[in-house]
């Protein structure tokens, strides 16, 4: 039972953040590798799959509330698909220990950036779009 319960709870907790678009996936990766004991590449695979239902559940509300910028979608997705295919291929070819070190360095950069970010977002930027 707890074999299932803890993973479902971990997915739900990080899923709220993922639904926001704030890197819940990175938190789930940390959980999967540091607590659930998955190898880095397996954890990354699980995390990719996990984002599909999570995003699928959050997106209708985002579209309905008018928060999705449709003009930005197509160019970003097109180059994103090409880049992600290359990177996924590279990651699955790499030694998992090396991959884990790279992941740690990435987290360190992101964490420091977020911690020392100066300006809170301008009030005008928070407004709902037309």
């Amino acid at each position: 039972m707890t074999d299932w319960l803890i993973p479902v709870l971990a997915g739900a907790a990080t899923g709220v953040l993922s639904g926001f678009g704030v890197g819940g996936g990175s938190l789930l990766l940390i959980y999967l590798t540091s607590f659930a004991g998955l190898p880095q590449d397996q954890a990354q695979g699980v995390n990719l799959l996990y984002f599909l239902p999570t995003a699928g559940a959050a997106l209708p509300a985002h579209f309905k509330n008018g928060y999705v910028d449709k003009a930005a979608l197509l160019p970003a997705i097109l180059t994103g698909l090409a880049a992600t295919a290359l990177a996924a291929w590279a990651a699955t070819a790499l030694d998992t220990g090396v991959l884990r070190r790279c992941f740690g360095a990435f987290l360190l950069l992101i964490g420091l950036r977020e911690l020392f970010r100066r300006e809170p977002p301008a009030p005008g930027a928070e407004q709902s779009p037309r």
Binding site: P7, V8, G11, A13, V16, L28, V46, Y50, N65
Partner: peptide, 19 residues
């Protein structure tokens, strides 16, 4: 991945609504 997908689905629903 399956249990995480179920949790993620629930979390995503909540996240989208309280955003």
């Amino acid at each position: 991945a399956l249990p995480y997908l179920i949790g993620g689905l629930v979390g995503g629903l909540v996240g989208g609504r309280v955003f």
